[in-house]
């Protein structure tokens, strides 16, 4: 976790600086009424808090690294492993798959894209029973799409629709 904290802090300190000194002023407009607080006020405070606490996180990890005592995260338990090379690789995979899914759903259509997605995901996590994969991948998107159309009168994207 120590590396993760240092990494996060090193990421958020510049982000906070950029936001406070450039992004927020450049993308907001000063208030029209003298009694009003500025539209910049709350976003700037939020970013300043992030920057300030990143600094604290950094300093603390730098000066007094606590020994890894094996205590689990309160909210996520063993899931919070810290961000390492493996997690970063997963994030990259996630980005690519998300982008492809979005493009596929938008330009080709919901059903074909999701058929591919389900099959890929099931294979990826270790399913090797082709009948199960095939049935899930073909039936689930079509059934869900039909339900969406009939119960919610919402048409999911598809180039043929």
């Amino acid at each position: 976790m120590r590396k993760t904290h240092i990494g996060t802090a090193l990421f958020f300190i510049p982000v906070a600086l950029i936001c406070v000194f450039w992004l927020i002023p450049a993308n907001t407009v000063p208030p029209t009424s003298a009694d009003d607080i500025s539209p910049r006020f709350v976003p700037t405070i939020a970013m300043a808090v992030i920057g300030f606490y990143s600094l604290i996180l950094l300093i603390r990890e730098w000066r007094a690294p606590k020994p890894e005592d094996g205590e689990l995260d309160e909210e996520f338990g063993a899931e919070a492993t810290g961000v390492d090379a493996r997690v970063l690789l997963n994030t990259l995979i996630l980005l690519v798959v998300s982008a492809l899914t979005w493009l596929g759903m938008n330009y080709i259509g919901f059903e074909p894209t999701m058929t591919v997605l389900i099959a890929v995901v099931m294979y990826y996590v270790g399913a090797r029973n082709w009948l199960t994969i095939g049935l899930c991948a073909v039936i689930a998107p079509i059934v869900l799409s039909l339900c969406t159309f009939h119960f919610f009168s919402t048409e999911l994207p598809g180039f043929w629709k």
Partner: peptide
């Protein structure tokens, strides 16, 4: 999708969602 990625990273780094 963007927030799912944010959520994933927060889970791994122990930042409270």
């Amino acid at each position: 999708m963007i927030f799912a990625i944010v959520g994933y990273l927060m889970r791994k780094s122990g930042f409270s969602i």
